[in-house]
């Protein structure tokens, strides 16, 4: 079989395989650099966390500039979601779900703030500011020390107080 015939045979096989999946095969390959630019995913093991670092002391300033107006002093008594306190309240008749009392993973705080906050101008915080304000929220919830440096290495090591109080409803168990 000539090289040309082999090429045709391979092409036919590819097209038959594509037809079996009923897929026009129009996906465009993307490069690693393109993926890096669009992938915001951060996982509890720290996968996806960017470079940078910060402490609660630095984060207090970020919080005052960007968060205080909606979330109140130290994450309480703001017009929007309460972010601190409520520890030990989950089994009472008035549970208070906050970052400190409820959230299972510290990485989720960084991930969410990077995606969605500040509400009016998401995306304005630098990585250092994101680590700092995450550290501040952990500090006001008595989870880390004020001078603890949060980074891609240390943030996944933070054990949230309520981490073990979650079960999975899926897959379903009848």
């Amino acid at each position: 079989m000539s090289t040309l015939n082999i090429t045709i045979a391979v092409a036919l096989l590819v097209s038959i395989s594509a037809a079996a999946q009923e897929s026009p095969g129009l996906g465009r390959p993307v490069t690693a650099a393109e993926i890096e630019a669009l992938d915001f995913t951060i996982q509890p093991d720290g996968d996806g966390l960017p470079d940078g670092s910060g402490t609660a002391m630095q984060g207090a300033l970020v919080y005052q500039s960007h968060c205080l107006a909606c979330h109140g002093p130290e994450g309480q008594e703001g017009v929007n979601d309460r972010l601190s306190g409520g520890h030990g309240s989950l089994t009472t008749s008035t549970p208070v779900k906050t970052v400190g009392s409820f959230w299972p993973y510290a990485t989720t705080v960084f991930d969410y703030v990077r995606r969605a906050m500040p509400y009016q101008t998401p995306g304005v915080l630098s990585n250092d500011e994101l680590y700092s304000v995450t550290a501040y929220l952990l500090f006001v919830n008595d989870i880390i020390e004020e001078n603890a440096v949060m980074s891609a290495q240390t943030l996944p090591e933070v054990v949230m107080p309520n981490r073990d109080n979650f079960v999975w409803a899926y897959p379903p168990r009848d």
């Binding site: 951060i42 996982q43 959230w103 990485t107 989720t108 991930d111 969410y112 979650f166």
Partner: peptide, 9 residues
């Protein structure tokens, strides 16, 4: 799972 804010908190 990625354990996002909406699926955890």
């Amino acid at each position: 799972p990625a354990m996002t804010k909406d699926e955890t908190s």
